[in-house]
Simulated scan of single mutants.
Amino acid sequence: MRVGIVGAGWAANEHSATLARLDGVTIAGFADLDVTRAKELAARYGATHHATAGSLIAAEELDAVVVATPPGAHREAAIEAIEAGLAVFLEKPIARSLEDATSIAAAAEAAGTVCAVGYQWRAIPALDSLAAALEGEGVRQIVSEGTGITQARSWFSNTALSGGLISERGSHHIDLQRAVGGEIVSVQTAGSRLVAQELGHASDLGRGTETGVAMTLHFASGALGIVHVLWVPETYPSRHRLTAFGSTSMYELDLDPVFSLRRDSGEPVLPDPAGEHPFAIGLIRFVDAARRQDPEGVICSPREAASTLAVVVACEHALVSGRTVPVEPLTGTAG
């Protein structure tokens, strides 16, 4: 299986390392507007380098493409690959706008191609155990915490490419809450800002960027979701956790880097299993699905990722308006 990678940043580096150790997978080429970065990665894996996704797709005989560029640059590369008959793995979020997201999802569904989006927490083994534990008693409230080092990219403050903290960090928690609690119909958002100097290495964020966000999610079921995410300096402790409150029990799901599920009593439901990190599992599952030509075999489909983006966009609007904002229903035909 020959794979091309669009992008040469952090995510491309991580995905390359995973692909390189899979039997029968060859990294054929990289594409990045920063050709120097593409050339350096290509040299590491004995691959070719290109300036654009179109050039990569035209020059190489590929079976699949990994798109690891900023979200605002996803649409063109993804649809080019889909129209060329290739399987596509997209980094999250699926796109910057709902128009782009629904276009990608519709193209993949029309072509019947395998397309996945990298919401890796859907690959946590404990998630199935949590769903089974909550089955029958329902969900009353879900609380997500996401505190971690900034790891700012220069494009985070470019609204055409990224939604900042809500999009880059918060969307992971929004997507996980959707996986546990179902569809979200409206949201409220509040944010806080710190000057760059207070975050040390986070100067790339720019002055107007939120460094702390709290989101309230209203589920169609009547349940309530709360998400708070915070960018912090390197010396600050990180914590990523989801707590689900059912009718009779509470469950705590520890997230990156440890994945384990506990009941309210503290008794483990499913301990952290040995094996692959969910970031790698999502890509490995995509490769397996692409080999089988099975669009249903991925961790997160483009339609699911587009539904998560609809909540992200609503949260962004709520942050600006200070009001409760309904989640816009998706247009287009589901596969």
Rank of each mutant, 00 (worst) to 15 (best):
V195H: 09
G138A: 07
V187A: 03
V180L: 11
V185L: 11
T189G: 05
S167F: 06
A152M: 11
S167Q: 10
S171L: 04
A131D: 12
A160F: 12
G138C: 07
S162P: 01
L165T: 11
E135W: 11
E137L: 01
G182D: 10
R140A: 06
I184N: 03
T147S: 02
I149H: 13
L134S: 00
A196K: 09
A196E: 08
G200K: 14
G191Y: 11
I166G: 13
E137Q: 11
Q188V: 05
S171F: 02
T189D: 05
S171C: 04
A152H: 01
G163T: 10
L130C: 03
V185A: 12
G182L: 12
A131P: 04
A179S: 09
T159F: 04
A179T: 08
G182M: 12
G148L: 05
E135L: 12
H172L: 04
I142L: 15
I166A: 14
S186M: 03
L194G: 04
V187P: 00
S157Q: 15
Q197H: 06
Q151P: 02
S171Q: 06
E145Q: 07
S186W: 01
A133Q: 05
S162L: 02
G164F: 05
F156S: 08
Q188C: 04
L134G: 00
R178G: 01
S162G: 02
E168Q: 13
G146Q: 12
G163Q: 07
N158L: 14
A132P: 01
D175T: 02
E145V: 06
G200H: 14
V139H: 01
S186N: 03
V195F: 07
S162T: 02
G170Y: 00
G163E: 07
